[in-house]
Every structure is written in structure tokens, then in C-alpha cells.
Amino acid sequence: MAQSRPILIVEDDAALRATLAEQLTSEGEFLAEEAESAAEAEAKLGDGSARFDAILLDVGLPDGDGRDLCAKLRREGKNMPVIMLTGANGESDVVHGLDSGANDYIAKPVSVPELLARVRAQLRTYDESVDAVFSIGPYVFRPSAKLVHEPGRNRKIRLTSKETGILKFLFRAGGQTTPREQLLHEVWGYNSGVTTHTLETHIYRLRQKIEPDPNTPALLVTTKGGYKLNVTAA
């Protein structure tokens, strides 16, 4: 199973906030962090050790307008998906929310299945964007920059295009084994001149870069028939 995606819920209604957190985390697909005000949300987002893949943001917060907070986050360069939650769903309200930088807009009362579907849709789009960031073991992986960053040691590791492609595809496989031929096809495309030896060479070089002990891989694991990524390895 893929690593749970961290979501920040910014909502002053404690009962709704708890319900959303419970529903989001029920299947292990997401991790939920809660904030009841704009100030608390900003504090959590400003924590250098925290990362959120998406934000559920109420418009009516006790210390401000959620749309103003969204606009401020965009100005600060925070580009994760933001889905606004509001009791007002008039056209002007929706336009105001989207103009502030929100990716989507859902009126209350919230349909949890619809909300989950929209969160997943926004994350799929985000994962293909230049802003996408993934957690793999102790690393933060930025595919668009071809970079793996290890915050604990403040170490940056540059990757080649093929190494980036391998990591990205294995991450999307959600911990499932990817056959060698499939990985070759996905990363190199159809090319009869490319063999599994080419893939094995790139896997070897990638392990030299990211594995604490390349001789005993913990992250990029060889399995029967292929490879898988263990994103929760320490």
C-alpha cells in the first residue's frame, strides 16, 4: 500500500472537523491534521518538519476569511491542492474562492464520498505537476527537480532522468511489485534495443545513491519478478 497522504483540515466546527478527519483516515489512504483557525493553520504550515499534500479550507474561520488565507499561501509559494468548504455556494462565492487560488469548491453540508473523490482527483493532477513532492523513507522526492533531499542530514542527491522515472513509477505502484518488462516499457518506452540489463544497471546506480547499505536494499527492493518501493523504510 502507498504511504498515507497528509491532509490539513482547517475548519472551526469541531464536530465537522472530527467527522472529516475520521472519514479521511478510515481506510489508511490519508493522514489528517486539524486546525480550527487561520492562525493555527499557518503555524502548522510554517513548521519546517511538516508536509501536507492537500488542504481542506473552510471559508468562515473565526479569525479571518479562508479565501484570504488561500491567497496568502499562494503568494508564499505553497502550491498543494486547496479545496474550499463553505455554506455559501452562489456563483460569486465560487468565483471569489477560485480567484483566491483554490483548486475546488464544495458547499456544506459536505458529502464525504464526493469530497474524497475530489481530493483524489486533485492529488492525481498535483502528482503530475512540477510542484509534486513525495516522501520515500527518510527522503523528500521532487521528480520535477530530479532531486532527492534528506532533511535529517541536509543532503541533496541529484538523479538522472531514468532514475527519476524509476522512482516515480515505483512510488505510484503503491508498494506492489512492478515486473521488469513493465518498468522498462514505462520508463524507456518501447525500444527493442533496451534490455533488462539496462534496467538492472540503473537500479544498481540508484541504490548506490539512496540506500544506506546498497548491498542490503531496504527502499528499492528486488522481489520475485521485479522491483517494489518500500516508502516506509527508515
Results as ranks from 00 to 15, higher is better:
residue 1 M to Y: 05
residue 2 A to V: 04
residue 2 A to D: 04
residue 4 S to E: 14
residue 11 E to G: 05
residue 12 D to K: 08
residue 12 D to N: 15
residue 13 D to V: 05
residue 14 A to R: 13
residue 16 L to Y: 08
residue 18 A to R: 11
residue 19 T to V: 13
residue 21 A to T: 10
residue 26 S to Y: 10
residue 27 E to P: 05
residue 29 E to Q: 13
residue 30 F to E: 03
residue 33 E to V: 15
residue 35 A to I: 12
residue 36 E to L: 14
residue 38 A to V: 13
residue 39 A to F: 15
residue 39 A to G: 09
residue 40 E to R: 12
residue 45 L to N: 01
residue 45 L to K: 03
residue 45 L to H: 04
residue 45 L to S: 02
residue 47 D to I: 12
residue 47 D to Q: 10
residue 48 G to V: 08
residue 49 S to L: 01
residue 52 F to H: 05
residue 54 A to R: 01
residue 59 V to I: 06
residue 59 V to D: 03
residue 63 D to M: 09
residue 68 D to P: 07
residue 69 L to V: 04
residue 71 A to L: 01
residue 72 K to Q: 09
residue 73 L to N: 01
residue 77 G to E: 09
residue 77 G to L: 05
residue 78 K to Y: 12
residue 78 K to A: 14
residue 81 P to G: 13
residue 84 M to Q: 05
residue 86 T to D: 01
residue 86 T to F: 02
residue 88 A to V: 10
residue 90 G to I: 02
residue 94 V to T: 07
residue 94 V to I: 15
residue 95 V to I: 14
residue 98 L to E: 08
residue 100 S to V: 03
residue 102 A to F: 00
residue 107 A to W: 02
residue 110 V to P: 02
residue 111 S to G: 04
residue 112 V to H: 00
residue 115 L to K: 02
residue 115 L to V: 02
residue 123 L to C: 04
residue 126 Y to M: 06
residue 129 S to E: 04
residue 130 V to N: 13
residue 133 V to G: 03
residue 139 Y to W: 09
residue 143 P to C: 01
residue 144 S to P: 06
residue 146 K to M: 12
residue 150 E to V: 14
residue 151 P to L: 03
residue 151 P to Y: 10
residue 152 G to M: 14
residue 155 R to W: 12
residue 161 S to L: 10
residue 163 E to R: 09
residue 164 T to Q: 09
residue 167 L to K: 00
residue 167 L to M: 12
residue 170 L to I: 01
residue 173 A to R: 08
residue 174 G to A: 06
residue 175 G to F: 01
residue 175 G to E: 02
residue 177 T to F: 01
residue 177 T to E: 06
residue 179 P to L: 03
residue 179 P to S: 05
residue 180 R to H: 13
residue 181 E to D: 11
residue 186 E to N: 03
residue 187 V to H: 09
residue 189 G to Q: 04
residue 189 G to I: 07
residue 190 Y to I: 10
residue 191 N to H: 08
residue 191 N to T: 00
residue 196 T to M: 06
residue 197 H to I: 15
residue 198 T to D: 11
residue 202 H to I: 03
residue 203 I to Y: 11
residue 204 Y to L: 11
residue 204 Y to C: 12
residue 205 R to V: 05
residue 206 L to F: 10
residue 207 R to H: 07
residue 207 R to Q: 15
residue 208 Q to M: 15
residue 208 Q to T: 14
residue 209 K to I: 11
residue 210 I to D: 04
residue 210 I to Y: 03
residue 211 E to I: 14
residue 212 P to T: 07
residue 212 P to G: 06
residue 213 D to L: 12
residue 217 P to Y: 04
residue 217 P to I: 05
residue 218 A to N: 11
residue 223 T to Y: 10
residue 224 K to V: 07
residue 226 G to P: 00
residue 226 G to F: 01
residue 227 Y to R: 03
residue 231 V to G: 02
residue 231 V to C: 13
residue 234 A to N: 11
